[in-house]
Amino acid sequence: MARTTYQELLDAGVHFGHLTRKWDPKMSKYIFMERNGIHIIDLNKTLSKLEEAASAIKQIVKSGRKVLFVATKKQAKDIVAEQAKAVNMPFVTERWLGGMLTNFATVRKSIKKMSNIDKMTKDGTYDVLSKKEKLMIQRERIKLETLLGGIADLNRLPAALFIIDVKKEHIAVSEAMKLNIPTFAMVDTNSDPTNIDFPIPANDDATKSITLITNVIKQAIIEGLEERKRDKEEEAEKEAAASKAKVDSGEEPAAEVAPKRERKAEATEAKDGE
């Protein structure tokens, strides 16, 4: 079943590209025609590429890994933050800090600093500080939250990036390429799609277009999470049945079965939390 339709893409204005004089020739294979000095994107290709991207993202999420949403342009940031939060995925919507991926260890230190400030407010350390020190810490906390709040729970490099406007987010694209992290992105007619692993030719300026494409990606993530959950449940049921069979046959004492199951569950939870 298709995640969206040609008509939905048309209604959302996904087909409207940029002025013909602003185009990137590398996008020519995704352009259907020119109308009134504006390039029109071929929605059949958009539909195909979107389905391909959604299927790939679903498999990444199903394997228990994270997809980092990136969109710092004004008309996209709120939409992307909302969709990413809905599926518990990390996001960057304020400013891409140089080295956010290539110097991830340093970024993690800044995130740890933010959590340390939170601990200070809970354990009473914050209360004994002077008014000036409190104000400085508050300002630093707000700054860190603004820049890094969306990736506070990201303990390791993401498995993929989903980007709105590759021209604006060229630093993120460059860092992902250096680390061989696959990129999924909305690519407009003024952008170069060749550096993107899963380009989605689409209008990356209109809120309706951004909302529709991002929602399709979100739905694919939801599908991946649900399938992962089902697979875990099925595996647990099989293990329980196998353990019961061993107990019934006398191969394994009943007292050892439960602790083993608990240890495996704890190990799985720890892995998912990384």
Rank of each mutant, 00 (worst) to 15 (best):
L97A: 14
L97D: 15
G99Q: 09
M100Y: 13
M100I: 07
T102E: 04
N103S: 14
N103W: 13
F104A: 06
T106K: 12
R108L: 03
S110Y: 08
I111Y: 01
K112G: 08
K112Y: 02
D118W: 04
K119T: 07
T121M: 09
T121E: 11
D123K: 05
G124R: 02
Y126I: 02
D127K: 02
D127M: 00
D127W: 01
L129T: 01
L129G: 02
K131L: 09
K132E: 11
M136I: 11
M136Q: 14
I137H: 05
Q138T: 14
R139V: 08
E140K: 12
R141H: 11
R141P: 09
I142Q: 12
E145G: 13
L148F: 13
L148A: 09
L148Y: 13
I151T: 08
I151W: 01
N155V: 05
L157V: 03
A160R: 12
L161Q: 09
K167L: 05
K168Q: 15
H170A: 11
A172Y: 03
E175D: 12
E175N: 00
L179G: 11
I181K: 07
I181G: 12
F184V: 13
D188C: 03
D188L: 01
T189Y: 03
N190R: 03
N190K: 02
N195D: 09
N195H: 05
N195K: 08
I196N: 08
I196S: 03
D197L: 06
I200D: 12
A202L: 02
D205R: 05
D205H: 00
T207Q: 12
L212Y: 04
I213P: 06
I217G: 05
Q219E: 09
